[in-house]
């Protein structure tokens, strides 16, 4: 994957908080706390649980993919035709918690080989680099 291809696929955000991983974890996984900072939801920290986030502009459908208390949380994020995965990684630091959020799009069918054609998203986004440069 080229750099441009990668940039087209992921959003990465990192923050440092003064609070402990235990507290940050609660804010990321308790329904009423999630509603406070993200959106109304029916989240449960159980792998395989399907939940919905209610945005003003529509709904986001999510499936819990991984739960490792106070360390790692991952769920799919499907909305408006975008298939993506959101992961949260918590690291305990001397003065609190380091939180990293990564949202990666277009992962769902990257292994899909369609009649030998070169149409996987990953390959497509790589080739898009050519298209984008061309367009400029």
């Amino acid at each position: 994957m080229t750099e441009v291809g990668m940039q087209l696929r992921s959003v990465v955000k990192e923050r440092r908080f003064a609070q402990s991983p235990e507290k940050v974890w609660r804010a990321l996984t308790q329904k009423y706390l999630i509603a406070d900072w993200l959106m109304a939801n029916d989240f449960k920290p159980e792998v395989g649980h399907r939940f919905v986030l209610d945005a003003e502009w529509g709904q986001i459908t999510c499936d819990v993919l991984a739960v490792e208390p106070q360390k790692f949380l991952s769920y799919s994020w499907q909305s408006q035709g975008l298939d993506s995965v959101v992961t949260w990684t918590l690291t305990s630091t001397a003065d609190g918690t380091h939180l990293k959020m990564v949202q990666t799009g277009f992962g769902a069918d990257q292994e899909l080989a369609y009649r030998g054609a070169t149409t996987g998203w990953t390959r497509f986004l790589d080739r898009l680099e050519v298209v984008v440069c061309d367009h400029d």
Binding site: K13, R15, F17, Q19, V24, A27, W37, L38, M101, Q103
Partner: peptide, 15 residues
């Protein structure tokens, strides 16, 4: 996400 993480920071402060 920038704006949501600001809200998260705010919530953590209140917690």
């Amino acid at each position: 996400w920038d704006s949501k993480l600001d809200d998260l920071e705010n919530l953590l402060g209140r917690m």
